[in-house]
C-alpha cells in the first residue's frame, strides 16, 4: 500500500488506482503476420522484474486516465511517473 501522485489529480491512495501491468509492450502492427511464438510473447510473457519496473496504471476511482510509472517492486518505492506517450526516463 502506498501513495500515488496522479499526474492529473495529485497524490492519492493506491487503492484508488488499478495496475495495467508491464508498460511499453507494443501492440503488433501486423497481427496477421505473427507466429504463435510471437503471439505468446506479446500476450503472456512478462519480465516480472524484482527491482525497477515500468508499468501502466489507471486512476480507476478518480480521473480514469492512464499513465506510466517507474516502481521498484522489491520495496514499492515509486521513482517516476509520466504521462502516456511521453518518453520513459533513462535513469
Amino acid at each position: 500500500m502506498f501513495l500515488i501522485n496522479c499526474p492529473y489529480c495529485g497524490e492519492r491512495d493506491q487503492s484508488e488506482f488499478s495496475c495495467g501491468g508491464e508498460a511499453h509492450i507494443v501492440r503488433p502492427k501486423q497481427p496477421t503476420e505473427l507466429s504463435d511464438d510471437q503471439w505468446a510473447e506479446y500476450l503472456f510473457m512478462r519480465k516480472n522484474i524484482k527491482g525497477v519496473q515500468f508499468e501502466r496504471w489507471n486512476h480507476a476511482h478518480g480521473c480514469r486516465k492512464w499513465f506510466n510509472m517507474v516502481r521498484d517492486t522489491s520495496n514499492d518505492k515509486i521513482h517516476a511517473i509520466y504521462k502516456m506517450g511521453e518518453k520513459p526516463p533513462v535513469e
Partner: peptide, 9 residues
C-alpha cells in the same frame, strides 16, 4: 500489482 515485498495492502 507486481510486488516482491511480502506485505500486501
Amino acid at each position: 500489482y507486481v510486488s516482491y515485498t511480502q506485505r500486501g495492502s
